[in-house]
Amino acid sequence: MQLDLVDVFAAGPLTGNPLAVVHGGEGLEAADMLRITRWLGFSETTFLLPPTDPGADYRVRIFYPAGELPFAGHPTLGTAHAWLSAGGVPKQAGTIVQECGIGLVDVRQESGMLAFRAPPLLRSGALDPADLAETIRLCGVNERDVVAGVHAANGPGWKVLHMASDDAVLAAEPAARAPLHTDVALLGPRAADGGPQWELRAFFADASGRLCEDPVTGSLNAAVAQYLFAGGLANGAYVAAQGRMTGADGYVHCRQDTDGAIWIAGKVATVSAGGAMPRPF
């Protein structure tokens, strides 16, 4: 097995969300993959495997410290980058097809970035009063600054608070602990200064129940983009910023094509490639 370390959605060197990609994970059990993920300590680690679907170029299993995810955004772009860097050639010119827990996901190379096609939302619509109150508590925001609270689940079960401003997003003081499988997030508009148009923060519960902040989150941005485009709050394309409260500086490029497809793009860079991993664990 080989291990690559990749930086995803970075605006500059080492400012994005780190990802570990394990090549040659055949034969590893899910428990082994989870052990490796927890030991590495990143928000996600992926395991490259031969595809089982004839339409896919590769299969990936995505783990975070509390278990396995059917889909995640920065692992999708980081894994595609690692697969290409290791000599992978897509069956369909110009489009990489990833097989993961939600099925097939298209990934493209464009303008020095990689972009994935946002999968459809599994759940959308307004949070009910109980969910809204709990999400406000977990995120640690002032209820008066909340414009809306919505479900935006696309693998992770995101519950998103649309805030009045980026200042309200950055001022949030999230709870220390949360139930397992908690995925909550904040979204707010930024000042029109020529930079990114939206500010995001994302929080998830780790295996111990600690509420952690993710530096830059592709699945969340894919879900939020569908909310913004559907509601007329964004048109054509925009850039979202995420990670400032974690020391990161992530830029996520979100675009809606004329056919309605939404693409989530960012820069991806190799930090270290080809590190040998011994067996067994």
Rank of each mutant, 00 (worst) to 15 (best):
V6A: 13
T15V: 09
E29A: 14
D32E: 08
R35P: 11
T37F: 13
T37W: 10
R38Y: 01
L40S: 12
F42L: 11
E44I: 11
T45E: 07
T45Y: 12
T46N: 10
T46S: 13
L49G: 00
D53G: 00
G55E: 15
D57P: 02
V60L: 05
V60T: 08
E68I: 13
F71E: 08
F71Y: 08
F71N: 08
L77T: 10
A82N: 06
W83I: 02
L84P: 04
A86L: 01
G87A: 09
V89Y: 07
V89H: 05
Q92S: 15
G103T: 06
V107N: 09
A115Y: 08
F116S: 02
P129T: 05
D131E: 15
E134V: 08
R137C: 06
N142E: 13
D145S: 13
D145M: 10
V146L: 09
V147D: 10
V147I: 11
G157Y: 04
L161K: 02
M163P: 08
D167I: 07
A168V: 09
V169N: 00
L170H: 09
A172G: 03
A176C: 06
D183N: 15
L186I: 00
R190N: 11
A192V: 14
D193W: 03
G195Q: 04
A202S: 02
F203V: 07
A205Y: 08
S208E: 15
S208N: 14
L211Y: 02
A223R: 04
F229Y: 15
F229I: 08
Y238F: 15
A240S: 13
G243M: 03
G243H: 03
T258M: 12
D259P: 00
G260R: 03
G260F: 05
A261S: 15
W263L: 01
A265I: 02
A265K: 04
K267G: 09
G274N: 14
A276E: 14
M277A: 10
M277L: 14
